[in-house]
Write a protein that binds this DNA or RNA. Structure first.
Lengths: 217, 217
DNA sequence: CCTGCAATTATACACTTGCATAATTACAGA
DNA sequence: TCTGTAATTATGCAAGTGTATAATTGCAGG
């Protein structure tokens, strides 16, 4: 009869270190995305990962450490999603660029969840030099990739190339932001089309004509 | 002898309700901008405003109420700063639009402090319907204003006008974001120039030629 | 079936948070 | 100068925070 209706010790199974760390990071990211950093308490994270709070400190030096690793995981995931579309073959440089731009303005890259994450981390990135380094690195990597795609369109002097990359990056970021912030304010492919038109206008190319996937929906 | 070297009661002066409320709101905004919502505790806000924590609940129903009003104050301030440049006379519709775009990519509108604020509020806006309403209202107001400036350039059908406004808004937002996030990554007027070129490219106008203030620095 | 150990849970603690309430005090008006 | 009162401060509290540490227990190897 002992233990009936009383707080019995929780049953658990031993998992590999890798899986536990990933589960805790994923839980932290979900919570930050949904409710900001303040929602990601050790207890909430542990709850969502299906463990008890103490385990966090068994796998991470501190909660701050967990958040740091979560940030790194998010940034690499975004980079990978962005660049994934470039692995497919494309008939021309224009088509490559068009596919890249369109991918940024469509799920899973354009996603309110992602924007919540991004915004939630901003202040912590400010304070932590390690996180700031990850941020700068990822941002510049993205812009460099974009610049190389633009360079493939044709010859351009470096200064102009840099300005074009910044401008296109700005367009993509801005539309991404709008789409994430007000997902219901736009028609399904509206932002994608606007993005291609705008980047195309900046570069003097008709990118819309080079996107092969527009008939899929 | 009573009270010597002991915690004496704080001296204070009575201020008008208006000024106290403004001071508390300003303090909350500063703290959120610098360190995110988690930094804006009642004690920190009161400290920064030069009062004791209890006073917050004398002027606001709850901390949540104070944050709500702070958000409203921020949004109207941003709108006002944006639109202020339009009060001056401009020789042409192009010049008006150019001045508007440039103003958005220059202090005080483009300011890391402001971006910190904006990001800090995102999650709270999600949860609170009142704040969400303020947000949508302000955003759409800004875009409508932009659309009217574009419409003044010449005749356009409504659908195209809407798309142009969204695109230009996206460019401005994106460049604003980049400038705020990495203030040292760009030359002084670089983003301003890129913004004018890009918006100009989208609209098919040379806006850069219509900005009168470029010789000021 | 043991037995040891590391993974996991449970408990406790010092600190912070927002809020309620009581005690003061500045200041306008008599 | 006195007095009332509203603005302001001081104190206390319950809930929540991250962290340290002790108590369990799943599970691999004999």
């Amino acid at each position: 009869m002992v233990g009936f209706m009383t707080g019995e010790r929780k049953k658990f199974t031993r998992e590999g270190e890798e899986r536990r760390r990933e589960a805790l990071i994923a839980a932290a990211l979900d919570l930050i995305a949904a409710g900001g950093p303040q929602a990601a308490t050790v207890r909430a994270i542990a709850d969502r990962a299906g463990v008890t709070p103490g385990l966090i400190r068994h796998y991470f030096r501190s909660k701050e450490d967990l958040v740091r690793e979560a940030y790194r995981a998010m940034m690499t995931a975004m980079s990978d999603d962005n660049a994934a579309v470039l692995q497919a073959p494309h008939p021309s440089a224009e088509a490559r660029l068009a596919a890249f731009v369109a991918a940024a303005l469509r799920p899973p890259v354009m996603d309110p969840h992602r924007m919540g994450l991004w915004a939630g981390f901003i202040h912590q990135v400010r304070g932590d030099p390690d996180m700031a380094a990850v941020h700068a690195e990822t941002y510049l990597g993205y812009r460099d990739l974009l610049e190389s795609l633009i360079a493939a369109l044709g010859p351009n002097d470096p200064a102009r190339l840099r300005a074009l990359a910044i401008a296109c990056n700005g367009v993509i970021d801005g539309l991404w932001l709008e789409g994430c912030a007000l997902p219901d304010a736009f028609a399904p492919r509206e932002l994608e089309t606007i993005g291609l038109q705008s980047v195309g206008a900046i570069l003097g190319r008709d990118l819309l004509a080079h996107l092969p996937e527009l008939e899929s929906d």
